[in-house]
């Protein structure tokens, strides 16, 4: 079972999936509150560039990651103001954010292309890292990967076991009833939107600070959109989003390693693997959701007007 090839593919899956996971986990929280944010691509880019900029100024990747959290959150605030305060079309606002984030990051990023930064390196966790098979797959990474091992269960706990989580789910299902029960719908939605975008910003910073160790325009290459898709696939659940993100990461990791061992399959077919997998899994997910009713939050994407 401990074939080095499989271990390498799976370890690569965790690494490749982590950036998407941050973004998808954030989007789960946002969408649970009834706000859909399609702007993850732009938010990740802004996170990636703010992470690099601040890390190269301060020399600390930790401060860089925090800056990405703030940067992503600020873009989330824009989306929140548009879609909550002004009750704008959330799809349109999300697309605006994608374009805005791409432009902003390209503009501010020019000064940081090719900049040397201190990055997180892989740290093997004592004991856990020595477990055969599992150890090299999960416990021989950088600190941002380990962060998700804590973050994702925490988010699940937040969503299902806390009052705040209940409030988020309530405003996402039925804002009128939630409001009648004394929940301040806009406040909860503001929180969920800004927090979700902040996490997406961290996902972007993972790409620039840790994974590729540098900034280049448009470096997310569609991963923000993948993250939006993963939320549907995950049935709006943080733990399933983790599985989905690793599946996406795994498909990419497999594609590249199949090439490294020298298969004769067309590179185009291999390049399609991540997307093909997602389509297949979507189809299965949709069919299953029809049977079990654990689908989308009922008020998703609908503007809430408290004065109507």
């Amino acid at each position: 079972m401990a074939d080095p090839f499989i271990v390498a593919v799976l370890a690569g899956a965790v690494r490749s999936g982590t950036a998407v996971l941050y973004a998808a986990a954030g989007e789960v929280i946002t969408e649970r509150s009834g706000i859909i944010n399609l702007g993850l691509e732009g938010i990740m880019l802004v996170g990636a560039v703010s992470g690099i900029a601040i890390a190269s100024i301060t020399g600390s990747p930790f401060i860089g990651i925090s800056a990405a959290f703030v940067g992503g959150g600020l873009l989330g605030l824009v989306h929140a103001i548009l879609s909550i305060r002004f009750q704008a079309n959330q799809i349109a606002s999300g697309i605006v954010l994608t374009i805005l984030g791409g432009g902003l990051s390209a503009f501010f990023g020019i000064a940081y292309v090719g900049k040397q930064i201190n990055s997180f390196s892989a740290v093997k966790i004592p004991f856990l890292g020595d477990i055969p098979f599992i150890g090299s797959i999960f416990f021989n990474h950088d600190i941002m990967v380990y962060g998700t091992y804590i973050l994702i269960p925490l988010l699940a706990f937040l969503l299902y076991k806390t009052k705040l989580g209940l409030a988020i789910r309530a405003v996402g299902e039925d804002p009128d009833s939630a409001s009648a029960a004394g929940i301040r719908v806009s406040h909860v939605r503001y929180f969920a939107t800004i927090f979700g975008a902040a996490l997406a910003g961290m996902g972007g910073a993972y790409l620039s600070l840790v994974y590729a160790q540098g900034w280049i325009e448009n470096m997310t290459a569609g991963r923000g959109l993948i993250a939006v898709g993963l939320v549907l696939f995950a049935g709006w659940d943080p733990l399933k989003a983790m599985f989905g993100a690793y599946l996406f990461g795994g498909a990419q990791s497999l594609e590249l390693r199949l090439q490294a061992i020298g298969t004769d399959i067309s590179p185009y077919i291999l390049g399609m693997i991540p997307y093909l997998l997602i389509i297949i899994v979507f189809t299965i997910g949709t069919i299953r959701q029809r049977k079990v009713n654990t689908g989308s939050p009922t008020a998703l994407g609908l503007p809430y007007n408290p004065n109507k």
């Binding site: 390498a8 690569g12 690494r15 490749s16 950036a19 790409l207 994974y211 590729a212 160790q213 540098g214 280049i216 470096m219 290459a221 991963r223 990419q252 990791s253 590249l256 390693r257 090439q259 490294a260």
Partner: peptide, 11 residues
Amino acid sequence: DPPKEAEAIKG
């Protein structure tokens, strides 16, 4: 596609 390049080099 920098992230993909990085993963490919690791592979």
